[in-house]
Design a binder for these strands. Sequence first.
DNA 1: AAGCTCAGCAACCGCGTTTAA
DNA 2: GTTAAACGCGGTTGCTGAGCT
Length: 249
Amino acid sequence: MQYTVEGSGGGGVQTVEAAVRKGPWTMEEDLSLVNYIAANGEGAWNTLARAAGLNRTGKSCRLRWLNYLRPDVRRGNITPEEHTLIVELQARWGNRWSKIARYLPGRTDNEIKNFWRTKIQKKHRKSTDGIYATTTSESIMPAATVHQNTVAEDQGSSSVSGRTTTATVAVTQEYAIEAPTPSGMSSGSYLDQLQPGYASSIHGGQDGGAAAAAAGDVVVSDEFLAASSDNFWALEDLWPTVQSLHGNC
DNA sequence: AAGCTCAGCAACCGCGTTTAA
DNA sequence: GTTAAACGCGGTTGCTGAGCT
């Protein structure tokens, strides 16, 4: 029996001997992935997927790892400080979620993107009902209100593909006014102090995690595991197993 | 209590970029 | 220099649970 599956990257279709799984991940799959990465490290996702015995695409494995399984992923509500930061960085860079995520260690681009769409953008949409009929951030505001510094900030970044939605800038500038700001600090000065890995200053001193996130390392602390207890199956269900197997972390 | 609506989020898809052969 | 594969990113979809009628 043969199935057609999506080829990664450049597209195309190939025939393989078994169907590639899609949809929600099972705990067994998670464990296999975490276990494999703990032993061999991440990267080469297609190879990894096969080697780990996962019937998933490399793409899917990478996404699962980055957005959910990585031990330094923070879960739980977005704090007011993070809210402020997201609003300001979105105003500065547009929908460059991965870039924004680098300034919020532990938060993923997907999480920030979802937060933006469900909380901030929707709020704005409500306030502009009857003015703009469209629903996407790209088309809400007239392009004439775009701030020049958005372009300037993007120069020198690795991939300015033209997808950046400059039209969203004006929306978020408006929201920056509403967003909560850490006490005793104007939003401008607050932003100016930030750099990737800064989060230890606003996340209760999880220096190790923030530094590790900035460095790309994986650190699992008891505190982190405790904070992760709101997962479908908690990460602490997975990591102790992995740690006992590999004696690391 | 049942049905409906909506919000939140995990995961998929398509496309651009990078890398290796 | 070319091409294909792999990677990374942003947009979108669809499922699930909570709240409402």
